[in-house]
């Protein structure tokens, strides 16, 4: 842990309280990667909610973003490619008091893990999924993913992507998730709020966190350095709250951000607890 800072209680140092820096750093991420920003937002959200470290389980699959749990001082489970949400289902039902958080990437969650993702949405089980959505497979070296935009390039789409991308948020809403939001690594304050709200939501939550992969996506598509890529988000989002009042041409090619969907519906582990109680009465 960094100890050179003068004022240890400064907000920037909140993050250090939750890291396993001594044991697991240096981390694997490229300098300028958005995952670090999302890690910071996650920790600040947890700190803001005042949740004890022992009551938090962070799970992940495989990929750059899925290395995150190794670095944080919670109950952490780094699982297999795409399956973190299925593991999380077992953790949650076995110990419902745990706040279960899944960190996943666009390939992990929407390609190989797509089935587990939609069915956890459908069950509305209280798992918070943070989708680090950088539109490419980073760890394996820049292959196009289910969220790579049409015609954009990657190492396995060297002539441009012929496939159409998923909208992860729409997919989650259609599958039955009770809280769906989108943030970006530029809008960090908002992202922190959205993650905190997702953790507080009693049901399945998705936070689609748009992030930059300048190393692969940026290079393949000539989108520049980390600063340029992160700043791109500034001018390419539309707040969902005000989007209805805007003319369509102003929304063209932009991401809706903020809370996209929220509903009250019975949560899976609570349903199960209710069932057990009812059976006992008989």
């Amino acid at each position: 842990m960094a100890t050179t800072t003068k004022k240890p209680e400064q907000p920037s140092n909140v993050v250090h309280k939750y890291l396993r820096a001594k044991k697991t750093f240096p981390h694997v991420w490229c300098s300028g990667c958005g995952i670090g920003i999302i890690l910071g937002a996650l920790i600040r959200a947890i700190d803001r909610l005042g949740l004890p470290k022992d009551d938090i389980a962070v799970l992940s699959g495989i990929g750059c973003s899925s290395r995150l749990p190794v670095y944080v001082d919670f109950n952490t489970l780094h699982t297999t490619h795409g399956r973190a949400i299925a593991f999380a289902t077992g953790v949650k039902v076995a110990k419902p008091k745990l706040n279960v958080i899944v960190i996943t990437g666009d390939g992990d969650c929407l390609a190989i893990g797509g089935n587990h993702f939609i069915h956890a949405c459908r069950r509305n089980i209280n798992i918070t999924t943070i989708l680090v959505n950088n539109h490419i497979y980073g760890m394996t070296g820049g292959q196009f993913s289910p969220t790579t935009p049409y015609t954009k390039r990657g190492s396995t789409a060297p002539y441009g992507n012929l496939e159409h991308p998923f909208d992860a948020a729409k997919l989650a809403i259609a599958a039955g998730a009770s809280y769906v939001a989108r943030g970006t690594v530029y809008h960090v304050g908002q992202l922190t709020r959205l993650i905190a709200d997702g953790i507080s939501n009693n049901g399945f939550s998705l936070i689609d966190a748009l992030s930059n992969c300048h190393t692969y996506y940026g290079r393949w598509n000539k989108e520049g350095d980390p600063v340029k890529m992160i700043e791109w988000f500034k001018s390419h989002v539309v707040p969902a709250a005000t989007a209805d009042k805007m003319p369509p041409e102003k929304k063209e090619g932009k991401w809706l951000t903020g809370v996209l969907h929220q509903e009250d519906k019975p949560e899976y582990t609570e349903n199960y607890a209710r069932l057990r109680a009812e059976l006992k009465k008989k």
Binding site: L59, R83, A86, T89, G90, K92
Partner: peptide, 18 residues
């Protein structure tokens, strides 16, 4: 679960949770 892959994943998750 949604398939056998997820089934054993959930089983391991529950086991890890005690």
């Amino acid at each position: 679960m949604e398939d056998e892959i997820g089934s054993l994943a959930a089983v391991i998750g529950a086991s890890v949770a005690g």
